[in-house]
């Protein structure tokens, strides 16, 4: 397939493919220090041996040129997200059988979002960014920073379960992912906020607080869509917390 330099690419946003390099530690890395090695398409193809069949952005911008704060505070139309999320749900539904599997799939989608969102949000805090080492700290981070970054408002409530030491609950009266979704009666137990639960689970896992997060609907009079995210930490976390306290 030839690389065609038609006008359409000038306006496209394709990011260039970075060819593989051999960064083996035992070979001496002799670099010409005269120029910074920003790859142009010609050098890139010579490095990879055969001509690359991927297309390059005409402006030769890489993902490393994009500033991370560019989308800070940017707003997304709810309708666009709703359509995309609806397709995501339909896509998952075709590939699974059963409500539990569907929730797991949505959870997996949210998981990859959460891993990236965590690093991005902590980076955006700049020099004052810190790693959370306490359970309460990471939960506060989720209910405030994370929720505000996605929904522009903090989560509605954070509670600790009285019966179980390892369970915490985050409530959201009206999860935005569920706004336009009406679950049919035969799939009553499904809550598409499993996607949001996946985001929370990824944030907790990446910070070394392994947990399982599930979304449960608890409709009440004023908030028919109220959802509670149940966070169940693993034993490791509890042991560590106990060490902190002592």
């Amino acid at each position: 397939m030839e690389r065609s330099n038609t006008d359409s690419f000038r306006h496209s946003q394709y990011l260039p493919f970075s060819p593989t390099t051999s960064s083996h530690p035992s070979t001496p890395l002799a670099q010409k220090h005269a120029s910074l090695p920003i790859p142009t398409p010609t050098t890139a193809s010579s490095l990879s041996g055969s001509a690359s069949t991927l297309r390059y952005s005409q402006s030769r911008k890489t993902i490393y040129d994009r500033h991370l704060n560019r989308s800070k505070g940017a707003e997304l139309s709810k309708a666009s997200f709703a359509f995309l999320f609806g397709e995501m749900v339909q896509y998952a539904q075709k590939r699974v059988s059963g409500i539990q599997d569907l929730e797991k799939k949505l959870n997996a989608h949210g998981y990859s979002v959460g891993q990236r969102l965590l690093e991005l949000l902590v980076w955006r805090e700049g020099r004052s960014g810190k790693r959370e080492t306490r359970v309460l700290g990471i939960l506060q981070f989720i209910t405030n920073t994370l929720w505000r970054a996605i929904y522009n408002k903090p989560a509605d409530a954070l509670e600790k379960s009285r019966d179980h030491e390892d369970e915490y609950m985050i409530s959201d009266n009206d999860p935005m992912v569920n706004t336009y979704i009406s679950v049919p009666k035969e799939m009553n137990q499904l809550n598409c906020a499993a996607f949001q639960a996946g985001i929370i689970e990824a944030v907790l896992d990446s910070c070394m607080f392994p947990a399982r997060v599930t979304a449960h609907s608890v409709p009440n009079e004023t908030w028919p869509g109220k959802t509670v995210f149940l966070i169940k930490f693993e034993q490791v976390v509890l042991d560590r917390e106990a060490e902190f306290i002592s």
Binding site: S18, P19, T20, T21, S23, L36, P37, I38, P39, A44, L47, T62, I63, Y64, R66, L68, S112, Q115, R116, E119, L120, W123, S206
Partner: peptide, 27 residues
Amino acid sequence: YELYTKTLMNPFYSVDMEVRSAVFDGR
């Protein structure tokens, strides 16, 4: 750290994957 975060934003890069980008190396 900034470079790593940008690498992570790539949807084709997952956590714990090797970083093979020449641009990353250069930066």
